Amino acid sequence: MHAHTSRSGTKNPRTRLGVICFVVSLVLLVVLALCSIAIGSRPVPLSEVIAVLGDPGASGVAAEAVRLRIPRMVLGVLAGMALASAGTLMQGMTRNPLADPSILGLNGGAAFAIVLSMATVGLSAPIQYVWVGMLGSCIAALGVWALGSLGAKGPSPLKMTLAGAVVAAMLSSLTSAVLLPRIDVISSFRFWQVGGLSGARFSLIVPLLPLFVIGEVMAVWCLPGLNALAMGDDLARGLGSRVRLVRMGAWGASVILSATTTALAGPIGFVGLVVPHAARLIVGSNYKRIFTLSLVFGPILLLASDLIGRVLTRPTDVEVGIVTALIGAPCFIVLARRRNLQQI
């Protein structure tokens, strides 16, 4: 009885903290979403933003500015959710606290494949990019896994991280090699390559919405298996978890979410690294809770980064991929210096 009370006493405060953080984060997300619509080269008062949102037929300069910024905000929310989800899945299935789509090469693979298709085949729409991006992400993922599995002891968190860094650097160099001789591609897609939300349009976002939904549904299906994997493959199998199927599902969901986001917004890094760690500090090691909180933290980080980029150099923008890199790089260094890299 005493042990049960003790466990409940340690569990309930963290659960309550998680619920409180989730509610507060939702409120903050709504505020940031409104600020994302209001702030720009021409600021629009929040009262006018709310008025335009309540009256789709409104006209005028403010109404036009609001309508142009809404797709940017929506893409920020979708991309933040997708990248945070992919990072959570990758950290769980590899038991690697440094895993995320950019560090393990998925973003780089998608970016290289898309840029190559732009330069050679002339593809020009995200609905076309996404399939090429998925192929690039899959090849990059296989390359990282193959490199990280070299040696008698097989894959380990540190080896996978190093392999991901090698593959990501190689893909970045190849992407530059493709772009440099093609001035037309550089001028047209240089902001996309950095990673940004400024090119968001509903005509581009809506056709890819089903892929976001499919990726998130697959991610939710994998969550119980990730909690089992955290205890080790052998124990997970002993508990009845289908280890290989869970890993395949998690890889598949990560590729879909990363490639779709990259097709629309470019290769935005570090969101999938920082967000799951922030959620883990609050709710512990349960991946269902980490995932739930990450779905809100991801859009918060991306919208906040986008707003910082708009305010710092107004009236021009600093693309969101640059801001997330400035935030995420120090976090990566701190995490890389931790001693217990073999565990989450």
Rank of each mutant, 00 (worst) to 15 (best):
A3N: 11
R7C: 01
K11D: 02
N12A: 14
R14T: 06
R16D: 03
G18Y: 08
V19Y: 02
V27S: 12
L29V: 03
P43C: 13
V49T: 03
I50G: 04
G57P: 10
A62E: 14
A62R: 14
R67S: 15
R72K: 15
M73H: 08
M73N: 07
M81T: 05
S85I: 07
M90Y: 02
G92E: 03
T94P: 00
T94R: 02
N96D: 08
P101H: 04
L106I: 09
G108Q: 07
G108K: 02
A113R: 00
A113H: 01
M118G: 05
M118C: 12
A119N: 07
V121C: 13
Y129T: 02
Y129M: 11
W131L: 15
G133H: 06
G136V: 04
V144P: 00
G151R: 01
G151E: 07
M160K: 02
T161C: 08
L162T: 03
V166E: 02
V178K: 02
V178S: 04
L179T: 01
L180T: 15
P181A: 08
S187C: 09
R190Q: 12
F191V: 05
V194N: 03
G195Q: 00
R201I: 06
R201F: 09
R201Y: 10
F202V: 10
F202L: 13
I205E: 03
L211P: 08
E216G: 02
L223V: 13
L226A: 10
G232D: 10
G232E: 09
L239H: 11
L239W: 11
R242K: 14
R242P: 02
M248K: 13
M248N: 11
G249I: 12
A253N: 06
A253H: 07
T260M: 05
T261H: 05
F270C: 06
V274Y: 07
V274W: 06
R280D: 01
Y287V: 00
K288C: 13
K288S: 14
T292L: 15
L293G: 05
G298H: 03
L303F: 07
G309E: 03
R310K: 15
T316S: 15
V318R: 11
E319K: 01
L326A: 13
P330R: 14
C331N: 09
